[in-house]
Amino acid sequence: MKAFELVSPRSVGDAVALLAGKPGAGVLAGGTDLLGLQKDRVQGPSLPLPGVLVNLKRVPALRGIVKEGERIVLGALTTLSQLADDPLLRSRFTAVAEAAAEVGSPQLRNMGTLGGHLCQRPRCAYFRHRQFVCLKKGGDRCHAAEGEHRYYHAIFRGGPCHMVHPSDLAPALQAFDATVRVAGPPGERELPLARFFRHPEEDPLREVALDPGELVTAVLLPEPPPGTCSAFTKARVRQGWQFALASVAVAITLEQGECRQARVILGGVAPTPYRAAGAETVLEGVQPDERVLARAADAAVEAARPLRDNAYKIDLTRGLVRQALGRALGVPPGQVGLAGPWSGDV
């Protein structure tokens, strides 16, 4: 592993100050992604390896899940296990808890943190392979475009870099209109999660809208409207412990059996979490039945533009959308009833 100096601040203020004082320093949370990059020396002309790591693990203020007015505050250092096991998340934000439970393995969930998870780097094998200097490292092209791109590459909005955002949690959080709280030299700011992720068109070097010296301190979730149910589904190459080939988070708010609001967010298929607005339109204002779900699933993938070898992801995503919707609606939290014919085959 590339050597580094480790500094361990005790407060957010100190952490921000340290980062500001050491340009090029990295932020270390659980280390599950960062240390892998450091070991593999993933670097390039525009991607230096940090020589100093600011270790957040000794900042108590970043931990925990608390209520703040109408919002739930998830501290950036909250581990994925804590998110997966939290009773409040499990009951009210089911897709979030389910997504957290689908990340990696038990050990990784005990180590990985929410902040690190949202800021993790892409899993494109060209990005991770030292032999390829791709756009993300300051190179001049995306090797995946013509290369091997069956698994961790985009079918929506790809290019100039065809990465997909690897996070499982991001689609689920976005389905609940989450906000990210960021601390930096000028102070704190908040921005919607949907705007936190950057498309490579804007900046191929970074996936998130953090300025130098900035940290994620928390993710905030507004109370979902009553009658909201949600689910998360994910497909991997094998059954166990892997990044998503595609994932789907849905949050559906029902009022007297009718869908008042729908959120269908796709993961693993685009450079940022992808909002399937077409599917939401199909769902909103109608009583969801099997046919509606099928139409929503079709609408979700309408805009797909696959690469040479990953068109199967369209069918996969369509299937996952239908299954996620079915699961969310089939097991509605509370007493929301369902109208319409159901075969139960969801």
Binding site: A125, Y126, E148, Y151, V237, R238, G240, W241, Q242
Partner: peptide, 14 residues
């Protein structure tokens, strides 16, 4: 490109 034990997907307990 996947000379690692994660993307080279050997069967897990699941």
């Amino acid at each position: 490109l996947n000379a690692n034990l994660h993307d080279y997907a050997v069967p897990t307990a699941l």
